[in-house]
Design a protein around this nucleic acid. Sequence first.
DNA 1: GAGTGGTCTAGACCACGGG
DNA 2: CCGTGGTCTAGACCACTCG
Lengths: 238, 238
Amino acid sequence: MKKYEAISAEIKRRIMEKEYSTDSPIPDEISLAKEFACSRMTMKKALDVLVMEGLLYRKRGHGTFIVKSAIDNKLVNVGTGESLGLTNLLKNKKIESKIVLYEVMFPNEEVASHLSITTKTPVYHIVRLRIVDGEPYVLEDTYMPSDLISGLTEEILHFSIYQYIKEKLGLTIAGSHRKIRACKSNELDQQYLNCASDDPILEVEQVSYLNTGTPFEYSFSRHRYDKFFFTAVSILKP
Amino acid sequence: MKKYEAISAEIKRRIMEKEYSTDSPIPDEISLAKEFACSRMTMKKALDVLVMEGLLYRKRGHGTFIVKSAIDNKLVNVGTGESLGLTNLLKNKKIESKIVLYEVMFPNEEVASHLSITTKTPVYHIVRLRIVDGEPYVLEDTYMPSDLISGLTEEILHFSIYQYIKEKLGLTIAGSHRKIRACKSNELDQQYLNCASDDPILEVEQVSYLNTGTPFEYSFSRHRYDKFFFTAVSILKP
DNA sequence: GAGTGGTCTAGACCACGGG
DNA sequence: CCGTGGTCTAGACCACTCG
């Protein structure tokens, strides 16, 4: 365990357990560094994590304070997210997957360009309906290069592709770029998400990358508008 | 100008001008630190900025590489955004504002709780239609404590509230928490955004904070679904 | 082993806000 | 003035990947 992560976790615990007052600043960086027997730079890095998560804010010349609203609201932080994939995000829920389509094909120009491959490189094309606690939740339309993500089976698709990539293929997922938009529902949405023809859809277009910088997934997640929203924390530079 | 920002900007320039190959790593941190006459920690911080923006990625034991797709797509980075407000985001466009409603009122429970005030504290309630290059773009429904954001005039509402807060009131905006969702359009949307009754809306619910941690704005921005999408860069921890 | 980025140190000075 | 956080330094050792 990295030192700054351990410190960060301990301070987070103290905040959540209300061991620090929300009316006065938490102890200053130098005192905390002394308490945790680390340098001030390391202490700062530990606090940086919590500032990023929206739990703390700093006032130059004053100190570091707790964001009051952060204690009650358990934010799903997406800005610098901890994990990707439904299986990770909804750990307490029962998640099922219905495979709507599973094929190997040559990508069109658009898909190929987002995956940084040619139209001659075969890709998996997967359409999955994800069902959370018995309710249809999201329809995922996913493209992955078949040589990169090899050995996919229907059994894996019924569970978690991300877990397979990490644990069985030993690849490291580095992050993703997303575009979030609203759009009209199409027939496929209506059929599988069980929604009305005038129900909107929240669509997340996503390119995910390995730590090698290689894109491994280009996907469109189409969410029921009443079952999902996206959260983001934005911190401006001074 | 801070040193690491200046270095960061210069490296960004080099990437955009294609002065570095995208097939090999950019120079290592120690060489770059030497070139820019700074310590390695400062160099690292400068590169951190570009990693956050999705322009670079690092491979331990290998080097630091350019994200190929980042050069073409000019991402509007929202994750750790540079600025808030339309006036900043769309600098090249002609932005007009039509004031639909402008009143002072007592907030309901929901608004009060998000602004961390009581229902006895008066707030401005502002509904503005923002028009970009002559096209209706977003309908903003905004609540602000009137004692905090004092001296608002219609003239300011026609231009930029954020700029007024920063430049005239001398307050510093620290960041915001957002929820992004899709929803159905209502009559107000249809009237002002000039959209059909079955057109969806991309709604951004936002609480914005000053650097004091005080919430100063609770707003709902309702966007035409065909004129706006939200982008986010997500970087996972190793 | 050589070279990379990742973490950490023990200081230094600066910028800001308050008394 | 003092105390706060913000930046910066010149090193150190570790973890990882490759030849």
